[in-house]
Amino acid sequence: MRTMLNTLFVTSEDAYLSLENDNVVIQNEEKILAKVPLRSIEQIISFSYKGASPALMGKCARSGVGMSFYSPRGRFYCSVLGENNRNVLLRREQFRKADSPEDGRDLAAAFVLGKIFNCRWVLERTKRDHALRVNVQRLTAQSALLKTELDRVEDYASVDEVRGVEGKAAKDYFYSFDDLILRDKDSFFFERRSRRPPMDKMNALLSFAYALLTGDCTAALQGVGLDPYVGFLHVDRPGRPSLALDVMEELRPVVADRFALTLVNTGAVKSGHFEERENGGVFLTDAGRKVVLAAWQKRKNEQITHPFLDEKIPWGLVPYVQSLLLARYIRGDTDAYPPFMWK
């Protein structure tokens, strides 16, 4: 089993990354902010406008260190891909399955099956743990709707039909999402999902967590040799990491949603960690991003027992394990892809 090392987060908008011997050098103008041994990290995530030197990107590609670039507001730009990740035979088989209506439907259904199962688990877990603080009747009703969709998802004949049930399940899940917010309801509330830009604090926090999870899934897929831009559930578009979004769907409720809710419900993230822009969009401040990123790294190191492998792994390795299981299925080593269904 792969060992998870640390992730280096660079949050300063003006930071520039370079290579000195085998160290990552982080500097602002002429001032050196930090030096980090490259051997001690497995991934670099930069939220800086200035980027990194070609020497550092090349070293990361050769060493298998993931490197992803985001805007300071959390929008994913790109990631570095080395030659050792270019498994052309595996990718050719991935493309064949993506072009096959039957294979495409089966994989899309697996991703949606995992998503709906986990959405329902989040609602049921909240009912169990906070019965006196939530609208149990509404959560029960929405959970029942998800159960109906869960029982039918594998019966649909096409990818478009699977996409339809995924959209309905997401609507049913988010209908009761506001009930999951237990603290500071004046500042943190949820009416509907809003993006580009997020229009309230809860959506801003969710969008930032989704961006981090997308980056982790993209890096994991590249690490096992798959093309993160050729998916099964999400329609292919230039610049869209469709397969990373596919894998993210099943992880979104239990990884990103629960993470965001925990930050709010424990008071770790506060109203002052957000700012509103002239266009009405709401974003995390620099201080807010640091709080979220520190909590994200801590969360990734927490141990779980993987429901399919029955092995203890950190949460941070879940995208890698799911990508590995997907690659095995695409190669023909297994009969089906097992979605991540948290219990």
Rank of each mutant, 00 (worst) to 15 (best):
P238A: 14
G281M: 01
V235I: 15
A268Q: 15
R258W: 06
A256G: 08
L245G: 09
R258E: 13
V264I: 14
N279G: 06
K270F: 08
D236C: 14
L243Q: 05
R252W: 03
P241A: 10
L245H: 08
G239K: 10
F274S: 02
L263P: 11
E278M: 01
V264L: 10
T266G: 13
R237T: 11
V264A: 08
A260N: 07
P241H: 13
G280Y: 01
L245Y: 09
V264Y: 06
R252I: 05
E250D: 06
V254Q: 10
G272P: 04
S242W: 03
E276I: 02
T262K: 15
V269K: 02
E249M: 02
L245W: 05
L261P: 12
T266W: 07
E249F: 03
F259Q: 13
R240E: 09
V254C: 09
A268K: 15
R277Q: 11
V254N: 04
V235G: 06
D246S: 04
G267I: 04
V269A: 02
P253V: 02
D257S: 03
P241V: 09
A260S: 15
L245M: 10
G267P: 14
F259V: 05
V255L: 13
R237S: 09
T262V: 07
E275Q: 08
L243F: 05
F274H: 05
P241G: 13
A256K: 05
E249R: 04
